[in-house]
């Protein structure tokens, strides 16, 4: 799970114009929330344990706390400011190194993050672990040989895929209905184990970033947009005039 700037947060560029200023509010990446929910539901059906993992600065612990409050059993935090600047390849390498002694059957990630939007970390992790993967998942059922998953394809098409476990699945928003943390859950979360992994512990697995953000900026507008301004009543009048005389839909 990843912590990303809140959807409505106004973003400001940093001095060097290569990233945003960190003083914004954060929230959990939306598809990751669905990935957690799916893990909790699978555990409710099949027993077992749900472990949540994030890589990010101290602030990212909030994501883990919320996940524990919703019902995850334990958490792993790759904690260092530097984890934010890793590309997807190295983030996946760091995660793979942090979980090398674990025996997971399934790893879920959100299908992409709301900040970078690379849509790669889960698939890269699968390749590093040597596991099969499937992306943009809308349903997961256990079967005799492993699992049957439902992949979302473009334009309203879907496909079921049978695959063995262990496997990595990238989860699409809307796969389930999210739960809220309960008060008792929030209380219990305080006593659940949270393992911290420092950058030093995984450093030897990492390499140089393979790609680099040269410049971050506000996109130039290409379309001519007419702004309609004024008090709401005035805007309404102006718009109706456009609807009638320019767009001819009235």
């Amino acid at each position: 799970m990843k912590q990303v700037p809140q959807k409505d947060a106004p973003l400001k560029l940093n001095e060097s114009g290569t990233w945003i200023r960190e003083d914004v509010s954060y929230e959990v990446n939306e598809p990751d929330a669905y990935a957690l929910e799916e893990a909790l539901r699978q555990r409710e059906k099949h027993k077992g344990e749900v472990v949540v993992i994030t890589s990010g600065p101290a602030r990212a612990q909030q994501v883990l706390r919320e996940a524990l409050a919703k019902g995850a059993d334990r958490a792993i935090h790759l904690e260092d400011d530097k984890f934010v600047g890793l590309d997807a390849f190295n983030t996946a390498k760091a995660i793979a190194a942090a979980i090398k002694d674990e025996q997971f059957d399934l790893i879920f990630t959100g299908l992409q993050s709301d900040d970078y939007g690379y849509a790669q970390t889960g698939v890269i992790l699968a390749e590093l672990l040597g596991w099969p993967h499937a992306t943009i998942i809308m349903q997961i059922e256990k079967n005799e040989t492993g699992i049957r998953v439902k992949r979302e394809l473009e334009a309203g098409f879907f496909q079921f895929v049978d695959m063995p476990t262990p496997a990595v699945l990238t989860i699409q928003s809307g796969i389930n209905k999210l739960r809220y943390a309960t008060l008792i859950g929030i209380k219990q979360a305080k006593n659940k184990p949270l393992r911290k992994v420092s950058l030093a512990e995984v450093q030897s697995a990492l390499g140089e970033n393979l790609q680099k953000i040269e410049k971050l900026y506000i996109p130039q507008k290409t379309k001519k947009t007419e702004h309609i301004e004024g008090a709401p009543a005035e805007i309404a009048k102006k718009l109706v005039d456009k609807l009638r005389n320019e767009l001819r839909v009235l």
Binding site: P5, K7, L11, L13, I20, D114, D115, Y116, G117, E208, N209, L210, Q211, K212, I213, E214, K215, L216, Y217, I218, P219
Partner: peptide, 20 residues
């Protein structure tokens, strides 16, 4: 050669280069 991509769901854009 740099490649332009949207970031933060289109709120910002980035020019990204290969270092590999």
């Amino acid at each position: 050669l740099v490649f332009t991509r949207q970031m933060f769901q289109g709120k910002l854009a980035a020019d990204v280069s290969f270092t590999s």
